[in-house]
Computed example of a mutant assay.
Amino acid sequence: MLDQNKEELVNKKLQHAQRELDKNHEAWRAILNNIQQELNALLAAIGQLVERITVVQEDQQVTLLAQLRQESTRLMGLTNNLQLLTHLELQKWQPANAPFNLHQLCDDVLRDRLPLLSQKGLGLFHHYLLLFGRRRGCQQSDRADS
Score class of each variant (00 low, 15 high):
K6I: 12
R74V: 00
R69G: 01
I46S: 01
E26H: 08
V50S: 03
L84F: 13
V62M: 05
V10S: 06
Q15G: 03
G47Q: 11
N97F: 06
I35R: 02
L32C: 05
L49V: 05
L9M: 02
L84V: 11
K13A: 11
L75A: 04
E20D: 06
L39Q: 09
L21D: 15
L43H: 06
Q91I: 04
Q60T: 06
V55G: 00
Q67K: 12
K12R: 15
Q61C: 01
Q70C: 04
Q15I: 08
R69P: 00
E26Y: 05
T79Y: 15
R74N: 07
A98L: 13
Q18A: 08
A44P: 00
Q91L: 08
N24T: 10
A96T: 04
Q18H: 03
E7R: 11
N97Q: 08
I46K: 02
V56K: 07
N81C: 03
L85Q: 13
R19T: 11
E38D: 14
E71Q: 15
M76A: 12
A66N: 09
V56T: 15
S72G: 01
S72M: 10
K12W: 06
D59P: 01
L85N: 06
R69C: 07
Q37K: 10
R69H: 11
E38Q: 14
N97S: 08
R29N: 14
N34M: 08
P95V: 04
K6D: 13
T73A: 08
W93F: 11
Q91N: 15
E8Y: 07
A45F: 02
K13L: 14
A66W: 03
K23D: 05
Q67T: 01
Q67E: 15
H16I: 10
L49C: 04
L88M: 13
V50D: 06
R52A: 11
A41L: 05
Q60I: 03
I31V: 09
R29C: 09
H16R: 13
L82H: 03
V62H: 09
T86F: 12
L43N: 10
A45T: 06
A17D: 15
N11F: 05
A96Y: 01
A96M: 04
R69K: 14
V55P: 00
T63L: 13
Q37S: 05
L82T: 05
Q91W: 02
E38M: 09
Q70K: 10
R19Y: 06
L75K: 02
H25Q: 00
L64H: 04
R69D: 10
R19K: 13
